[in-house]
Structures are given as C-alpha cells and as structure tokens.
C-alpha cells in the first residue's frame, strides 16, 4: 500500500466513509453552501477616486508615487533613473520602446541565460503590470511582455512600475482575483520589501527592491 492510499484511507475513515460514496457532492454544487455575501467592493468611488485611493495606499507603504501622461513618461522615467544614479536598467522584452527613449542608463535585455549574478549587477528595472488594487495598494505582475520574468523585478534594488490609470486599476481584491489567470506566475507587490521580524514593527528594505517607484500613467 502506498502512502497515498494510507492517507486517503485515513481521511475516508475519519469522515465516516469507506470509499468515494454518495456524500454531498464536492465541487461547484457543494461549494454553493459557502456564504459569499461579503462585499465585492468596499464603498462607492468614481474611477478618479479609485486611482487616488491607490496612490494613497501605495504611499502609505512607502512606495513613491508619480503621475504623468504618455508625453511626459519618457522624461519622468529618465529623471527617476538619473536621481537614483542608475548606470544600467533592465528592460522586459515587450516594454514599449519610447518609454525609455530619454533614459541615460545602458539598457540590459533579460535573456533566458542571464544568471541571477548578472542581474544582481543591474541597478534598476522598469516594468508595466497586469493590474493594481486600490483598496490594498497592491501591484500584480503576471509575467506579461511588459513585465518579464519574475526574477527581473526581484534582484535589482530599484523597481519602477508603470500602471495605466484608470484602465489597469481595480477597486478590490475580489475584482482582481476575478481578472487574473492562475496558470501564469503571479506576484502581488504591496510596497517595497519589508519585515516585521524585529519587535513586530514594519521596517522597509530587506531582500526585494528597497525602492519602489510607481508611475500612474494617464490623462492629466
């Protein structure tokens, strides 16, 4: 008997069943017994107010929030990289070329064979995102062409993430979950890397990027 059989047998005995008999059906039918009367969104907001809430919550967790439109984006990104003193910037494969048209730092393309050590030598990374959640101040990456592999937003110490507003902003966690594809690797980011491990107080800056710039891109 395999351990799989042992564990499954114990579960069935614990639940008072010998085998997969006529128990109330699991799956969608049985799951109907789960009450889902919690709120899909907390409060009513206009799209502009939702973007403002996102900005406020991002800032509360020490992300640096900037706003610009398509025309102002290249200059803003160039400025953010310059202020950081970045000499190199990682570029995901599908990042719109004009975004970094004005940026000084040398572009580093992420390749399949790029090692973690090579990425560790890069100063900054610029990406888009899959969506952003206003109520929690969260950015979600799903590995799309404007975002690249998960490692490129992890190893450099400085991450600039561009969010198209209001199009990519959702109000709440339930709204976000409904839009995401679990088959893709998903990274939920709420502020820069932090820890609560010393006396249960939040301190920013451990292993992930210690500086997170968020650019809200839309008509100003």
């Amino acid at each position: 008997m395999t351990s799989r059989d042992v564990v499954l047998g114990r579960i069935r005995r614990a639940l008072g069943e010998r085998g997969p008999g006529p128990r109330p059906s699991p799956g969608p039918a049985g799951a109907a017994e789960i009450p889902r009367d919690y709120l899909a969104v907390h409060g009513a907001r206009t799209p502009a107010e939702t973007v403002d809430l996102l900005a406020a919550h991002l800032a509360e967790y020490r992300a640096r929030v900037h706003r610009t439109d398509e025309d102002g984006l290249p200059a803003l990104l160039a400025d953010l990289l310059a202020r950081r003193g970045a000499r190199t910037v990682l570029v995901p494969p599908g990042l719109p070329a004009h975004w970094l048209a004005a940026a000084e730092p040398a572009h580093v393309q992420d390749r399949a064979e790029s090692t973690a050590r090579q990425l560790d030598a890069v100063d900054s990374v610029v990406t888009g995102c899959a969506l952003a959640v206003a109520e929690t101040g969260t950015l979600v990456l799903d590995g799309g062409p404007e975002q690249g592999r998960r490692r490129i937003t992890l190893i450099p110490d400085h991450h600039i993430c561009v969010v198209r507003v209001p199009g990519q902003v959702v109000d709440s966690v339930p709204r976000a979950v409904a839009l995401l594809d679990p088959a893709r690797p998903l990274t939920w980011i709420s502020g820069p890397s932090a820890t609560s491990d010393i006396e249960l107080d939040r301190v920013e800056g451990v292993h992930g990027p210690r500086t997170l710039d968020v650019v809200l891109l839309g008509a100003q």
Binding site: H57, Y61, V133, E135, T136, G137, T138, R150, P182, P185, L186, T187, W188, I189, S190, G191, P192, S193, A194, R202, G208
Partner: peptide, 9 residues
Amino acid sequence: ERMNPYTTM
C-alpha cells in the same frame, strides 16, 4: 497590514 509586501502564486 492591508496587504503583505509580497505574495507569490
């Protein structure tokens, strides 16, 4: 926190 800094799926 409203949300922890990183969640990986």
